[in-house]
Amino acid sequence: MKMITVLLGALLLIGINDMDSIEVNAEESNFNKAEVIKNMQAADSSQEDIEKVLSKLENGEVLDSEKQMHGESMNLFNNEMKVSKYGVVNTNALKDDLEKIIRYKDGSFVKVNVGIENQEPGGMSIMANGAVIKFTPSLVLPTASAGFTANIFIANDTRSSNYINRVTNGRVLTILGTYEGKRLSITRKNEIQRSKSPAQAQLSWKFRGIKDVVSQSQWLRIEAGHHIGGRYGVRVTSHPYGITTQ
């Protein structure tokens, strides 16, 4: 089992596992230094970077990671991505492609990754033409995080199309700022091969930084299909931050 994680930000750490909208007044909350340190250590940040980020936050400054408007993606594709007869994906062949980190001069970062959960042979939903695999895309910043779980049918060949079976555990955690309107949904259940349109699911929310320095719609998305980047694969993207896994 290979797991990968993703995060995003506000003052009070908040976890949401339902579809309700939530908003917090970050300016009335206490700065949770321990949670910022925890996020940064999870991204292997140096002690120097941690101290630089904490200094900026204590001075009320906006991190570079929260000001950037990236739309990159993380592609995960490999001939060995296909499912074995036991319904298991060869994650060893993909381990170098399951995570991407963008680092900034002020010590902040954006980390996007995806986890693939392989159970023991016989423990998964296996069919003659493929298997259902559990993926966990996630996003991490010093001051926030987001992620969800998607059960995706991965086809063994082009005679069958991939599809998203289920999405669960949508979560947005914020340490500085506020968010509202969290929504987890399957936006395209089945891959449409003739138009090269992959199956797609996403978690979306509206984020607002302290004093409205940053105010934007954000999302974390996973796609699966035979034509991602001109080949078979899975892609994880985040907006405005990003990475892709195939």
Rank of each mutant, 00 (worst) to 15 (best):
I101P: 00
N39F: 09
N169T: 01
V214Q: 05
A144H: 03
Q193N: 11
M74P: 00
G229P: 04
K134Y: 06
L176F: 03
K2L: 11
L11M: 12
K100N: 05
T158M: 15
A224R: 00
V24K: 10
V6Y: 07
F153G: 01
K105L: 10
A150N: 04
D20W: 09
T136W: 00
S138C: 05
A224N: 03
D97I: 01
R231G: 08
N92Q: 13
E80C: 00
S215V: 06
F109K: 04
L63W: 06
V132K: 06
N79F: 06
V112F: 00
S84C: 03
H227N: 15
S238K: 02
V132G: 01
K211R: 13
S125D: 14
E72W: 07
Q202Y: 03
I228D: 00
I102L: 07
G15Q: 15
T158N: 10
I4Q: 06
R221P: 02
V24N: 08
N17S: 06
G225R: 01
N169A: 08
L173D: 04
N90L: 02
L94N: 01
S45A: 15
I50C: 07
G177Q: 07
W205H: 03
R188S: 08
L12T: 13
V36N: 03
T143Y: 08
G233N: 03
V112Q: 03
L57K: 03
G147C: 09
E117F: 12
V167G: 01
L54M: 08
D157A: 11
R183I: 05
A128R: 14
V132P: 00
I210N: 01
I116P: 01
V214F: 04
